[in-house]
């Protein structure tokens, strides 16, 4: 029971991170109908930006840890968003009218470039970061197994909830959100009605990359080790989360993220760590085959 509870907490933490990345996939898919293949690498870039900012703030500027964390949060969000914006501007926007495969190939190219850029600029070896703050609260202690909720896990969950709330507000209540939903429905019509479609798409990438940046920061602080390759697997898993929740559905992405996090945690705990990625991929395949609309997605009727 205690073991189970601990896995539940770990899985939810991991799931929060996947969910934030999944939001970026789902938003871009909703507006452009394309899989932003480079999104996982953007998340990796976010992790590096966070690591560097955090180290710079604590060792060079000598700020206190809480202030450093706030600084890192803003840097991760803002600078990663800038990376996301640039990728869209350079590699996707010119291809908007191109054949269907062109943006996908371009995206694969971008992710190869980013991975190798980071490997060259920051070294290919894994980067360790000592735990920022240890400790937490003990939820249960049965003598031989202790269930604890670390401070870091609390920060991650609180931050995720906060971001989700802010994000939901933006999408449902603001003009920007309305414009975005309009573009999802019918881009041509939206542009005829005076919506600047290019700007909406840019904003979509900026928000998506910003959230991925925060996820990158969380993973850096939570696991304490990153390398230039983390984006690939995390990207596929987050995409699986988006598909599981129903691609195009924002609550679905978050739900999918949590489920994938939980599945991964429990699979590793009770079955085998080696095959945990197989579990995720199998879920992806199974969902797409048996329920392509995901858990919360809208079914789309084949128009003939």
């Amino acid at each position: 029971m205690e073991y189970f509870l601990q896995q539940l907490i770990n899985g939810l933490t991991l799931g929060a991170i996947y969910g934030l990345v999944a939001l970026g996939y789902t938003m871009v898919y909703g507006v452009l109908g394309m899989i932003n293949f480079a999104h996982g690498t953007i998340y990796m870039v976010g992790a590096f930006i966070s690591l560097i900012t955090f180290l710079a703030a604590t060792t060079v500027l000598g700020t206190s840890v809480p202030l450093a964390l706030v600084l890192t949060l803003f840097a991760a969000m803002g600078l990663t968003a800038l990376w996301g914006w640039s990728v869209e501007r350079v590699a996707y926007r010119p291809l908007r009218a191109a054949p269907r495969l062109a943006p996908l190939i371009s995206a694969i190219g971008v992710s190869i470039v980013l991975q190798n850029f980071v490997a060259q600029a920051q070294g290919a070896r894994a980067k360790p970061l000592p735990p920022v703050f240890r400790g937490g609260v003990t939820l249960m202690d049965s003598g031989d197994f202790v269930v604890s909720l670390s401070w870091m896990q609390m920060v991650i969950m609180a931050l995720t909830l906060g971001l989700m709330a802010a994000f939901t507000w933006v999408i449902t209540r603001t003009a920007l959100g309305r414009a975005q939903r309009a573009c999802e429905q019918d881009m041509k019509m939206a542009s005829l009605l005076g919506i600047d479609v290019d700007r909406v798409i840019s904003t979509t990438f900026v928000i998506g990359a910003g959230l991925a940046g925060v996820a990158g920061m969380m993973v850096t602080l939570y696991y304490g080790v990153i390398d230039f390759y983390i984006g690939f697997l995390a990207g596929i898993k987050a995409f699986t989360a988006a598909v599981l929740g129903g691609i195009g559905s924002l609550p679905g992405a978050m739900l999918g993220g949590l489920l994938i996090g939980l599945i991964e945690a429990f699979w590793s705990a009770y079955f085998s760590i080696e095959y945990k990625d197989v579990a995720t991929f199998s879920i992806l395949v199974a969902v797409l085959v048996f329920r392509p609309t995901g858990l919360l997605g809208q079914p789309d009727v084949e128009k003939i």
Binding site: A91, P94, A98, A102, P103, I105, V110, S111, I112, L114
Partner: peptide, 10 residues
Amino acid sequence: FGGAMVLIML
């Protein structure tokens, strides 16, 4: 290699 992929597509 990655750069070439992007550039050729563009």
